[in-house]
Design a protein around this nucleic acid. Structure first.
Lengths: 143, 143
DNA sequence: TCATTTCGCCTAATTATGTTCGGTATATTG
DNA sequence: CAATATACCGAACATAATTAGGCGAAATGA
């Protein structure tokens, strides 16, 4: 991971469709060499894939929430499965400490939150917070 | 947003580099029409951009944590700025409820967490959880 | 030390991919 | 019901990415 590799990752994180030519110019290499670099980054698993940023409010989800979930004794497996099967839960991390899971949920309405929490509450205690804004948008840590 | 548009978004979310030809085949349209669809999705702001999935452990960050941050009275502005300026904080949402912020942090080591928390703790109470696994990887809600 | 291999790079040619350009059918509107 | 707008198509064109062949510097090993 030299400077060129870092620049490639940084640039592609900003715009995953940056043309090879432009990438090559930025790192000061030829197109084929740059392509080789990328291939190696992919093979090494540094670059796991290319994806989209979608505006969730444009696809019918004006609300987002963060829900902390603490399964009741003996319900860990069930709750894990339930979380994975709830399509509106778009991200979930299992963490140390009091709460077991921290989930991000996309919602069509507040009512939908109630609905989803109800389905969980038989097996876990939950703590919900509506997202009001995002002071830090997804970004890379320093390379 | 008809079925074709949804398929395009779903497919590109999985692989942001899916060739137009393949997208066209999938939605049953010609390449130019598919390209038009994409352009409109971008113009309407549904597709906000293309980006990368990077393996954070491959770029020197084997640990991730979720930190909830509750600024002390009168320190909201300062804390907001501090969070934004802390490069290891790769995501932060401002939420309703007890805690004001929920942050995701990428870490080189546990010591680094201590360091970062120290810099915040003069202005806010914090509650940290180390991420042990991610039962739900980032995905789209139902389209 | 000097031959040998490996590696990363280059340019040029080739192939793949995406866009533009008429032009048509089907809705939409005055 | 004519006029316009929309979404689509195939063919031609333009752009972008990959492959092929070869060069030079650093690492490897006799």
């Amino acid at each position: 991971m030299d400077n060129a590799d870092k620049l490639l990752i940084d640039t592609l994180f900003e715009n995953g469709k940056t043309p090879l030519k432009e990438l090559a110019a930025k790192v000061g290499l030829s197109a084929p060499s740059t392509s080789e670099r990328l291939k190696r980054l992919e093979e090494r698993g540094v670059i796991k894939g290319y994806t989209l940023n979608v505006a969730s409010d444009q696809i019918g989800y004006p609300l987002r929430a963060i829900v902390r979930v603490s399964p009741m004794p003996g319900q860990l497996q069930r709750v894990t499965k339930l979380i994975q099967q709830t399509a509106e839960i778009t991200e979930c991390d299992k963490v140390t400490g009091e709460d077991c899971f921290v989930c991000k949920i996309h919602l069509k309405s507040i009512e939908q939150l109630d609905l989803i929490l109800d389905s969980i509450s038989q097996y876990a205690a939950t703590n919900s917070s509506i997202i009001k804004s995002s002071p830090v948008k997804r970004r890379l840590p320093p390379l």
